[in-house]
């Protein structure tokens, strides 16, 4: 059974603004799926539509085979959602708010399970504190605890790292991986592309309400990623010799480094030929190293 299957989904808001355009998406069991896109691309609308917060204009969405409209109880009980905004009940305690969420999703009280979740998220010593007294990072973790309180099979994390410091972010990534390892399917949106690069199995890029591409992260990096070979020369070079023009080399300002930009997609990188050419021309070099373009650079290219 496909955990989430979105077919021909459209959402048009009042004023004829089309937030989602013919979205088709199939999430696989147990994967970490990253949804990337600039602000206003439609990421949150898509998540909210799947979770039942926004009504779709047309199209179908099933969660583990359950239609989100006609079989909403079964569909929603499988989903946990951590929204982008820090929306919490300021006057409630951590313990009460997490238990409230569990009840709302139709599960009997289970002190041991709720305690486990709160401990896992390092909130146990704050369990009797009112949420208004917690820091932003702690509030974010409370929201994760609420989303996990009803033992969901699918977890949506809409910008989970927003406002969270670096060390806490790393802890959160670790928690997300642990959840994935326990069989939970995770869909996350993020502005931190390093987060998607670090964690995601597959990536979808959405822009102006349309899915531009969906691919395995590694394949995406391979297909669209570029590499740069940097050659540290022994002696400065006045100009790039004409016989090396085929490689379109850049000579840096100090004339001591040559840069060769190439794609790994085709397999033939022409790096060995370049190095052989340099040796043949008597151009000595001290060192060579390569840089892989980041997901961020790929993403910027895609949404241009």
């Amino acid at each position: 059974m496909i955990p989430i299957d979105v077919r021909n989904l459209n959402k048009t808001y009042k004023g004829n603004f089309q937030a989602l355009k013919n979205i088709n998406l199939h999430i696989k069991t147990g994967e970490i799926f990253a949804l990337l896109g600039p602000n206003g691309a439609g990421k949150t609308t898509l998540i909210n539509t799947i979770c039942g917060i926004v009504r779709p204009t047309n199209g179908t969405i099933t969660v583990d085979g359950h239609d989100i409209i006609t079989d909403f109880r079964a569909a929603r009980s499988l989903i946990g959602l951590v929204p982008q905004e820090l929306a919490t009940d300021a006057f409630e305690t951590v313990w009460h708010t997490v238990n409230f969420s569990r009840g709302l999703f139709g599960l009997a009280p289970n002190r041991a399970y709720v305690e486990k979740i709160i401990r896992q998220l390092s909130l146990w010593d704050k369990k009797n504190n009112k949420i208004m007294t917690l820091s932003g990072g702690m509030k974010r973790r409370v929201m994760i605890a609420k989303a996990l309180s009803h033992e969901p099979k699918i977890l949506f994390l809409d910008e989970p790292s927003a406002g969270v410091d670096v060390s806490l972010r790393k802890d959160m990534w670790e928690n997300v991986r642990t959840l994935r390892d326990s069989g939970v399917t995770i869909i996350l949106t993020t502005h931190y592309l390093e987060e998607a690069e670090e964690m995601a199995d597959r990536i979808s890029v959405i822009n102006k309400g349309e899915i531009i591409l969906t691919d395995n992260k590694d394949d995406l990096m391979k297909k669209l990623g570029h590499k740069t070979l940097t050659i540290d020369l022994d002696q400065p070079l006045n100009t790039v010799p004409p016989f090396l023009s085929a490689w379109k080399l850049d000579l840096d300002a100090c004339a001591k480094q040559l840069h060769y930009h190439y794609s790994t997609a085709g397999g033939d990188t022409k790096v060995p030929q370049l190095l052989a050419g340099l040796s043949k021309a008597g151009i000595a070099y001290k060192d060579i190293h390569t840089n892989q373009s980041s997901l961020e650079e790929i993403f910027i290219e895609l949404i241009k």
């Binding site: 909403f72 929603r76 989903i79 959602l81 905004e85 929306a87 009940d89 969420s101 709302l104 139709g106």
Partner: peptide, 17 residues
């Protein structure tokens, strides 16, 4: 009040009719 604070998301996404 939950609409104002945004916590209404939880009710809207819960299996509640």
């Amino acid at each position: 009040f939950p609409r104002f604070t945004g916590t209404i998301y939880e009710l809207l996404s819960a299996p509640v009719d």
